[in-house]
Design a protein around this nucleic acid. Structure first.
Length: 259
DNA sequence: ATGGCAATGTTTCATTGA
C-alpha cells in the first residue's frame, strides 16, 4: 500500500483551518504532522477534522508552539508521547504516535531567535535531547519518520543567499551540526533521496515579497529511518499552499511511502 | 535593497517568529 505523510507549519491552526481542510480534500494524505497550531487542547478543531475523515492527536498551548498529528488510517494512533521525556519543557513542541508498525514523530524545533540569544542555547539543548531520545526510539521502531519544522537549513543549497545567511540563526554551524547528528543516527532526509529543482525552499519571510523573489530557506523536513527511506518513492514541497490567500509562511513537505 | 509581515494577547503596541 502507498501512504502519504506530510508536515506543515500552519502558523495558527485557527487562521489556517480553512486552508488545511481544503488541502486535505485536495491531496490524498494519510498522516499529517502540524506545527505552530497555537491552540490550547480544548480549542483544537476535532469535529471539523473528524468530518473531513481524520483522527487528531494534539499537544497545544495558548499563543505559541503546539503540535498535532492527523491520520485517516483505520488503525488508531497508539503509544502517544507528548514532549521529550528527557527534556522537561512547558513548551509543546513534540508529539509521537504509532500507527501499527509506523512510528511518527512530529517536531517543532525551537527557532533560536539569534545566535547570541538564550533561546539559541535552548534550541541546541533541545536538539541534543531529541537526538538522545531518538536513538532509543530508532532501536524500538524499525519504521520511523521524524517530520516537522526543524528551523535549520542543512546545506548551502537550502538557502537562497548562503553568504548572507552564513552564521545566522537557522544556518549556523552548530545548528547544522545538530542536524547532521540526526542523520548520524541513520535517518535520511527524504527530500534529498530524489532529484529536486534548484531553489527548493519551505519557508519564505512574509516581508519584502520574499516568496515571489524566491528568497527562501528549506527548514521543514521529513527524516526517515533506513528501512522507511528504502520504501520512500517520492518527496515534494507543496509550494502552491504558500502562494494562496492569507498563507502560512511555510509550505508543506509530502513524502510518499510504499509499505 | 534584508527593512517595511503576520498572529497573538486583552491590544492600542509588545512579543515572537524565521
Amino acid at each position: 500500500m502507498t501512504l502519504a505523510l506530510a508536515t506543515w507549519n500552519v502558523n495558527s491552526l485557527k487562521v489556517r483551518l480553512p486552508h488545511l481542510l481544503r488541502w486535505l480534500a485536495q491531496r490524498q494524505l494519510d498522516i499529517v504532522c502540524l506545527q505552530e497550531t497555537k491552540l490550547p487542547d480544548d480549542r483544537f478543531p476535532v469535529p471539523e477534522l473528524q468530518a473531513a475523515g481524520y483522527r487528531s492527536v494534539f499537544a497545544g498551548q495558548k499563543t505559541y508552539n503546539g503540535v498535532a498529528i492527523l491520520s485517516r488510517l483505520p488503525t488508531e494512533p497508539a503509544d502517544i508521547q507528548v514532549n521529550l521525556p528527557n527534556f522537561p519543557d512547558e513548551q509543546r513542541r513534540l508529539l509521537a504516535a504509532s500507527f501499527d508498525g509506523l512510528r511518527v514523530v512530529c517536531a517543532y524545533v525551537p527557532n533560536g531567535q539569534s545566535v547570541d540569544s538564550d533561546k539559541y542555547a535552548y534550541k541546541l539543548k533541545w536538539l541534543e535531547a531529541l537526538a538522545h531520545w531518538l536513538r532509543g526510539e530508532l532501536a524500538r521502531h524499525d519504521q520511523l519518520a521524524l517530520a516537522g519544522d526543524f528551523n535549520i537549513a542543512p546545506e548551502a543549497r537550502d538557502v537562497h543567499d548562503p553568504v548572507r545567511w552564513d552564521g545566522q540563526v537557522l544556518f549556523s554551524e552548530p545548528e547544522r551540526a545538530a542536524f547532521r547528528a540526526l542523520l548520524d543516527l541513520g535517518l535520511k532526509d527524504a527530500f534529498r533521496l530524489f532529484e529536486q529543482p534548484e531553489r527548493s525552499y519551505t519557508w519564505w519571510d512574509y516581508r519584502n515579497l520574499a516568496f515571489r523573489r524566491q528568497w527562501g530557506l528549506r527548514i521543514d523536513h521529513i527524516l526517515l529511518s533506513p528501512s522507511l527511506a528504502a520504501q520512500c518513492s517520492a518527496c515534494t514541497i507543496d509550494v502552491a499552499l504558500r502562494g494562496c490567500e492569507q498563507p502560512s509562511d511555510h509550505a508543506p513537505v509530502i513524502a510518499t511511502l510504499s509499505l
